[in-house]
């Protein structure tokens, strides 16, 4: 019984250590609160089920990232068509600012637009940029978790940034 309780505590530790950052990552990838919560829960349940065979510490984080990466990718493939609808958003004409209310709305819309722009970046590149910006990881960690080379991480981060700038420019995003 006490072994089970210990395992329970270990799991809690892993959870508290990594769930917040994992869900942040997946939220930026998917743009959906409920989807990111579901996918991360699924990943942690898988981790829980295999926890005897899985490593702890950073390796656990890397393992979880690989799982959510695949889950999110599959989810995106299913939702592919819906995502195209967002493209329209970019080309809607912007009204002039007249008062604070509209300014707030514009700011709100801009935040959405940034998220949409992020989601337009091809998955492989987006994943790496998001791990960099939201995952509290350096190139070495990103390379280890995705099982690619550090050089590859460098290139992907750069390409993702370039594309993001292009999308943001095209989208005429209001930056306060």
């Amino acid at each position: 019984m006490s072994i089970e309780l210990d395992a329970e505590e270990d799991f809690d530790d892993i959870y508290h250590q990594f769930f917040p950052v994992l869900v942040k990552i997946v939220y930026r990838i998917t743009g959906s609160i409920s989807v990111s919560e579901d996918l991360c829960q699924e990943a942690f349940i898988r981790y829980y089920e295999r926890r005897d065979k899985l490593p702890g510490g950073d390796q656990a984080k890397f393992w979880l990232i690989r799982v959510v990466k695949n889950l999110a990718y599959n989810h995106e493939k299913r939702k592919g068509r819906e995502r195209l609808a967002y493209d329209k958003f970019y080309h809607e004409p912007r009204k002039d600012l007249t008062n604070e209310g509209e300014k707030a709305i514009l700011e709100e819309e801009s935040k959405k637009a940034v998220q949409e722009a992020l989601m337009k970046i091809p998955y492989k590149l987006r994943m790496v940029l998001i791990l960099k910006e939201y995952g509290e990881m350096d190139y070495k960690d990103i390379a280890a978790s995705l099982k690619i080379s550090e050089g590859n991480v460098k290139v992907r981060v750069f390409r993702a940034r370039k594309l993001l700038s292009e999308y943001l420019e095209k989208g005429d995003v209001y930056v306060p």
Binding site: D12, Y15, H16, F19, P20, V23, K24, Y27, R28, I33, S36, E37, C40, Q41, F44, I45, Y48, K111, V114, Q115, L118, E133, Y134, R161, L164, S165, L168, V175
Partner: peptide, 26 residues
Amino acid sequence: QDQQNLLHSLPEPDFTDSLDRVKFMI
């Protein structure tokens, strides 16, 4: 730097209730 600031200015959702839900599902 501007791009990074912009990315980090996006609002973060609150996931504090998630642990209970995960544990329940487990």
